Computed example of a mutant assay.
Amino acid sequence: MSINRVIISGNLTRDPELRSTASGLPVLGFGVAVNDRRKNQQTGEWEDYPNFIDCTMFGARAESLSRYLSKGTKVSIEGKLRWSQWEREGQKRSKIEVIVDELEFMSSRNKTDGYDANAEFAAIPSSLSPDSTASVYDEDIPF
């Protein structure tokens, strides 16, 4: 048995980028910075080391969330790790990213004029099952 689940809490490192696959499925890409706290062996002080995680979300929910996310927004995400490999200009490239199933706003700055973005999205289920994400991801994204 194997389990591929990830939970990450951090801040967006850039404004999200909304695109569409050739079939019209919305794809939202963004980065999340997560600190790893370690003790510096020379000074004995605790230090934060940032990790920058690429994240991708598919479907109508991704399109809706793109309006409320921006650089610096604190979020908690849940999803699965996905490794991909491609070739560009003769160079083999690869990356590990999180395919986001759930996203929750962690900062109150997303509340404006009594509007709570979490309330709108709490009731919206993810529009893709894990099996449908794999086929869309592999065939429709040109990179």
Rank of each mutant, 00 (worst) to 15 (best):
L12E: 02
R19Q: 11
D140L: 07
E120R: 09
Q91M: 09
I8C: 13
G10Y: 08
S127C: 06
E45H: 02
Q91E: 13
E120P: 01
D116F: 07
Y137R: 11
N11A: 03
E47F: 02
E78A: 12
M1S: 15
A123D: 12
L18R: 02
K111L: 04
E17L: 07
G59H: 01
V136Q: 10
Y49L: 13
E102T: 14
Q85Y: 03
F121S: 02
C55T: 04
R5N: 14
N40C: 05
E45G: 06
R38V: 13
A33I: 13
I7N: 14
K39C: 06
N40R: 03
N51H: 04
S70P: 00
K92G: 08
G114V: 05
Q91G: 05
M106W: 07
I99V: 15
V6Q: 07
E63A: 02
F52D: 00
K74R: 14
S76C: 09
A134N: 12
L69N: 01
R14W: 03
V27N: 10
K74H: 06
I3D: 15
K71Q: 06
L103A: 08
S76E: 12
G79V: 07
A119L: 11
Q41H: 10
R88C: 02
D54I: 01
S70Y: 07
G10R: 06
S126Y: 12
G31P: 13
A119H: 11
I99H: 13
I99R: 15
G24P: 09
P125R: 08
A22N: 12
R88E: 07
S9D: 13
Y68Q: 05
A22H: 06
A122H: 09
D131C: 07
S66A: 12
K71Y: 03
T56K: 05
R37C: 01
N11S: 10
F105A: 03
S107G: 05
S2F: 15
Y137W: 15
A117S: 04
T73S: 05
W83S: 11
D101A: 14
A22I: 12
W86K: 05
N51F: 04
S135L: 14
E17I: 10
E63T: 00
V34A: 13
T73Q: 07
K80I: 00
